[in-house]
């Protein structure tokens, strides 16, 4: 089986056949020693590596001694399926901005309809006595607000959407 993997923007093709693993065509000794719901210990070449995977919306977050990496993995079948649903054309990918933690909405830094850049500050959320700027994950146009200043929000509350350009 072939897997297309993206690790923080780096792409790898990993093929697994029986007990053998190829990475981008080069065979690599690799075995799982333990796997408790994504908390894995692996033997890779002669290295013993601990990695924990926690699912998120896009894929997985890999943690190695506190170093985090965003990871996606898909098979040929996944990709076809994704293409198919995308071609079905129902939903365009959007930049849904959700509260990353529970907190209090302090103020908006943009207004509805404004064009924003990727990484631009959108809104200030107060949590743990700190002001936290929520940044746009995509470039685009700011959609209607789902919250207002002074409102307390739970983690995961939809704050508003940024509709990607194009």
């Amino acid at each position: 089986m072939k897997y297309q993997v993206d690790v923080e923007g780096r792409q790898f093709e990993v093929e697994i056949k029986g007990d053998t693993v190829w990475v981008d065509g080069a065979s690599t000794p690799a075995t799982i020693l333990t796997n408790a719901n994504g908390a894995m210990v692996l033997r890779l070449n002669n290295r013993t590596v601990s990695i924990a995977f926690v699912p998120n919306e896009e894929g997985w977050v890999a943690s190695r001694s506190g170093d985090l990496a965003h990871v996606t993995v898909e098979t040929e079948r996944d990709r076809l399926l994704r293409k198919f649903t995308a071609a079905g054309g129902s939903s365009k990918a959007s930049g849904a901005i959700k509260a990353p933690m529970p907190g209090l909405v302090l103020r908006m830094l943009v207004h509805e309809g404004e064009k924003v850049q990727k990484g631009q500050g959108l809104l200030v959320l107060e949590a743990m006595k700190m002001e936290n700027e929520i940044k746009s994950p995509v470039g685009g146009v700011v959609g209607p607000f789902g919250v207002e200043p002074g409102q307390a929000v739970e983690k995961g509350t939809l704050l508003f959407e940024v509709l990607p350009e194009g």
Partner: peptide
């Protein structure tokens, strides 16, 4: 969050093995 090539490759192998084990 940048990850160097070698560590990224290890993560890639790990997640593929994980997926494979699940599948």
């Amino acid at each position: 969050n940048e990850v160097d090539e070698d560590r990224a490759r290890e993560v890639a192998v790990a997640i593929a093995l994980f997926r494979h084990q699940q599948a």
